[in-house]
Every structure is written in structure tokens, then in C-alpha cells.
């Protein structure tokens, strides 16, 4: 495996949006614990999972997934989302920005970079563990 003798890496894919289920919460809590245990954490938002990147989430009672993703990025998690899924759901506002390595959007939190699906493939090609959440809906 790629992580032998060095920092281990975990890749998480979220396929469902926040609040309708707790998959996003579970992912964020597992990712946070993994970071605390010394893992490198890579997250890819796919399908309806891209809604977790929405800026300004304000749940009254639920776990705030947008804030959690921002904290995870601050702790070192790499977080990307699918451009095809994001475009379909109205997030993408232009062509790929080479300098920032992301597709532009004023509607998303800075912690998440909208990227091609190859971003997920690169994560899978460089990981010790892989988990998918929310694809059983």
C-alpha cells in the first residue's frame, strides 16, 4: 500500500447532501478523528454530495456541515467536488482557473475546490483507505 512507512491516507467520498441524512455528519466526524490520528484526509463530494459545499449553511439544530468542512480544511484535509455534478446543480460560474486549481463559484465555501472527476481518481490512486458514504440511498 502507498502509506507504508509514512503518513497514511484516507479517501472519503460523499454522495448525498447535508441534513436529509447524517452521512455528511458521519463523514466529517470520521475525517476529524482521522486527522487527529495522523492520517492525511482526502474528501471528494460527488452527486448530491456537492451541496455540502454551499456557502452560508445555517441549520438551526443540525450539525453545520459547511462549517465542519471549513474546519477540516484548516486542519489539513484536501476537499474537492465534482465539476459535472456542481455544474448540474448550478454552482459553477466559469472555466477552470489554473492558478487557483478550481472552477469558480461565488456560492461555495473556500474549503472546497470544484474539480474534475480525475481529482477523485488521483485520490484513489494515492490512498491507504477508501470510504464511500451516502451512496446507499
Amino acid at each position: 500500500m502507498v502509506g507504508e512507512g509514512k503518513k497514511k491516507t484516507m479517501t472519503m467520498m460523499l454522495f448525498t447532501g447535508p441534513y436529509g441524512s447524517q452521512y455528511a455528519d458521519h463523514m466529517c466526524r470520521i475525517a476529524d478523528r482521522a486527522l487527529d490520528k495522523g492520517y492525511g484526509v482526502q474528501i471528494f463530494l460527488y452527486g448530491d454530495g456537492v451541496h455540502s459545499q454551499l456557502k452560508g449553511q445555517n441549520p438551526k439544530a443540525f450539525f453545520n456541515v459547511g462549517e465542519a468542512l471549513t474546519k477540516l480544511a484548516e486542519k489539513g484535509a484536501v476537499i474537492k467536488s465534482c465539476v459535472r455534478c456542481s455544474t448540474a446543480r448550478g454552482y459553477v460560474e466559469g472555466e477552470f482557473n489554473e492558478k487557483e486549481e478550481r472552477y469558480p463559484s461565488s456560492k461555495t465555501i473556500d474549503a472546497v475546490k470544484i474539480y474534475s472527476l480525475y481529482g477523485y481518481v488521483e485520490m484513489l490512486g494515492n490512498t491507504d483507505k477508501a470510504i464511500t458514504l451516502g451512496s446507499s440511498n
Binding site: M1, T11, M13, F15, L124, T127, A130, T132, S135, S136
Partner: peptide, 8 residues
Amino acid sequence: EGEIIVTF
């Protein structure tokens, strides 16, 4: 076959 398993 599954070192890395992704489920859909």
C-alpha cells in the same frame, strides 16, 4: 480485486 472499494 478490491484493495480500494467504492460503492454506488
